[in-house]
Simulated scan of single mutants.
Amino acid sequence: MTARYLETSTGRRIAYHLTQGATPAVVFLGGFKSDMEGTKAVWLEAWAKAQGRAFLRFDYSGHGQSSEAFVDGCIGDWAADAQEAIETLTDGPLVLVGSSMGGWISLLMTQRIAARVCGLVTIAAAPDFTEDGFWASFTDAQKAALEADGQVALPSDYDEPYIITQRLIEDGRNQLVLRSPLPLPFPVRFLQGTADTSVSVDTAIRLLNHAEGADMRLTLVDGANHSFSDADCLELVAASILEVLARANL
């Protein structure tokens, strides 16, 4: 299937796949350096089609098939991409499904388009990771390099190192969600693997304790890693979406 493109108000071209169907629509928000062709996004699209439910997956700028360079982006840019894609391409109530960085961006969406969000499912959500992950772990030498060069290279589990820019860190401080009230007045399901080496169980518990809502649950999956993409994990994501939809009474 060929991606379609949204020309945003900022001049970026956002690649997306939109499935028409019943509302509430499900919107998948992917992770840092991930893209909409990942296992979870594609599997959930097929699941949504089988359910007859509207579904949107897309690539942030600098990711996948969208325009711009990854190193030029930041959380604020990607949140703006997400908001414009959602507001332009979907109608009515939404269930957001955010994976890793997409968990952080989905939390931002719950505050920025609050009237449309009727449910949230996160998978290894990584709120505030630029500050509490990258910046907090940097050595004095890395912080000096960031100041001098505007970027620092970090090893990754993938082929290329992560290039972390000063802009990413500084902009991230304007997007933090764990330092101020975070109302989530709708059904919320946080999913987290205990074998995740990128996002800790402590982060998941911190998010659960910090957010404010009457219907929030955290599910820990013993032995699941950060990808959360085996058959059992995918079925749990789908079941969580259905549970959120049922409890939203829409």
Rank of each mutant, 00 (worst) to 15 (best):
G38M: 01
W43C: 02
R206Q: 12
G21H: 01
D230S: 01
G21A: 04
M216D: 00
I205Y: 12
D196A: 00
E160N: 15
F186A: 01
Q111D: 10
N209D: 13
T39G: 03
S156K: 04
D35V: 05
V42L: 07
G64S: 07
A124V: 09
D149P: 08
I14W: 03
D81Q: 13
Q192K: 04
G73S: 14
A22H: 09
H226E: 04
A214H: 11
A50R: 12
S137P: 02
Y60V: 02
S227D: 08
P127T: 12
T23S: 15
R12F: 05
P187Y: 04
P185C: 08
S198L: 14
A248D: 00
F32S: 00
V152P: 00
E235N: 14
Y16T: 04
A41T: 09
A124T: 08
D230T: 00
E235T: 11
V199H: 02
I86C: 11
F190R: 01
V221C: 08
I14C: 00
L6S: 01
G223R: 06
S61P: 12
G103I: 06
E37A: 00
I113H: 09
I123G: 02
L220S: 06
V244L: 03
C74S: 13
V121R: 01
L146Q: 04
E45P: 05
R12S: 12
I14D: 01
D91V: 14
A50K: 12
L120Y: 10
R57K: 13
L96K: 07
V121T: 07
M1D: 11
W104Q: 09
Q142L: 06
M216I: 13
C233F: 06
R179T: 14
S229A: 14
S99I: 09
L236A: 08
F190S: 01
S67Y: 09
A85M: 10
A79K: 00
K40G: 01
T110L: 08
D132K: 09
A126K: 00
A41R: 05
G62P: 00
A124Y: 05
M101S: 11
